[in-house]
Simulated assay, not measured.
Amino acid sequence: MLVNAYGAHAGDQPLEPLQITRRAPGAHDVQIDIAFCGICHSDLHQVRAEWHGTQFPCVPGHEIVGRVAAVGAHVHGFRPGDVVGIGCIVDSCKHCADCEDGLENYCDGMIGTYNFPTPDAPGWTLGGYSQQIVVHERYVLRIRHPEEQLAAVAPLLCAGITTYSPLRHWKVGPGKKVGVVGIGGLGHMGIKLAHALGAHVVAFTTSDSKREAARQLGADDVVVSRNAEEMAAHAKSFDLILNTVAAPHDLDAFLVLLKRDGGMTLVGAPATPHTSPNVFNLIMKRRTLAGSMIGGIAETQEMLDFCAEHGIVADIELVRADQINESYERMLKGDVKYRFVIDNATLAG
């Protein structure tokens, strides 16, 4: 069936209205009418062909919230009218060790919500900047937030799980001191989640003007990373530092803040590599430098349930479909607190 969408026909062209084809639901499929879709920084990189392998037309969007419109004959966990979400994953091999462990995000056969190979037309997945999507039931998530929060739930499907997964993996909770580097789309979720998990949270920013905003998000302390004295005051004290910055910067400045056996995990994806850290900053205190990528389906559902229980959503600005290109430009300037979300009802014209 044909549905309205917003996408680009080339990396140097703006996004514009277009129509795409969605398959009819198969036996294990869920058809979803999309209400809201978050705008992720990776959408911009992909649609502008700044990352290798973009196929056009490209319809981005992997932070999807909507309602079930129809289900396949063998679907038993969902029914029409249910409020559901789709994140970054719409398929995987289902049988490798990663999939069996519920870590589909690390499956070599993972299929992302857009720009990944699929038998459906046009041969690659098309994302949530559209009126509707059809997904295998395994990758559909249940949303338990109240109706008035649904738009602000959308960024949890990427920004939320990207920060929640490492916090859970490194067992963040009461008695732990956690640093969050960067107060943006990812960082603001990292602060909220680490605070809700019971950790002592320190936010790192390059801007003194963000101190109060970080505290309102749940930070117990705020450090301006350009201030050497403020940084030195936290030397060798962190259990975990969650680094959300998507630009190359000095990793050693944060590694030295880790206590013995502390770790820093990177979740921001810069366009060019970081310079290598000084290995002595790792080996002298048995510190670790790691990375983390989104989360599996089970963990994403756990995150959504945790956020519903604690009343956690993203801080958003709701935009119309015809404001997507403007939102991209504002996002590049950091002119958003902290995520844009599309009202997909505006795709109808």
Rank of each mutant, 00 (worst) to 15 (best):
C158V: 05
R48P: 01
W124G: 00
P25V: 11
P273W: 09
F340G: 01
R67E: 12
A232S: 11
T163K: 06
S165N: 10
E317D: 14
I316Y: 03
A219S: 09
A314P: 01
G7T: 03
V181M: 07
E212H: 13
L44W: 12
I316Q: 00
R339T: 08
G109Q: 08
A49H: 09
C307W: 00
A154M: 00
I316G: 01
N278T: 15
D98G: 04
M331C: 14
G268Q: 08
V3C: 11
W51Q: 04
G173P: 10
E299T: 09
G127D: 02
Q323P: 06
H145P: 05
G268F: 09
A308T: 08
C37H: 01
A232R: 14
V267N: 05
G66Q: 01
D91Q: 09
A121N: 05
Y106R: 14
G296H: 11
L156A: 03
G334P: 05
C88S: 11
A203C: 10
H310A: 09
D98S: 15
G349Y: 11
C99A: 08
P155Y: 04
S292E: 11
H169R: 15
T162F: 06
D101P: 03
N115A: 03
I89D: 00
G87W: 00
F280D: 13
P119Q: 14
T21W: 09
A321F: 13
V59W: 00
F56C: 00
V59L: 08
M231N: 01
A159I: 03
V245M: 04
D29W: 01
T300V: 02
I342L: 11
V341L: 02
R339F: 07
E148T: 05
D91A: 14
D250N: 14
A271V: 14
A348N: 15
I297D: 00
Y129M: 05
H310Q: 13
D120I: 03
M189Q: 07
P119F: 11
M264T: 14
A69S: 12
S225A: 13
L193M: 09
F78E: 04
Q301K: 10
P119I: 12
E100T: 09
A308H: 11
H41L: 08
L193S: 03
H200R: 14
G187N: 01
F306C: 06
N105C: 08
T244V: 13
F56M: 00
P17I: 12
D120Y: 04
C158W: 00
E326F: 07
R330S: 12
C96L: 08
P270Q: 11
Y114L: 02
D252R: 08
K333G: 10
V336N: 09
L266W: 10
T54S: 07
P60R: 06
T118G: 04
K94N: 12
I294E: 02
V140E: 03
Q46K: 06
I312V: 05
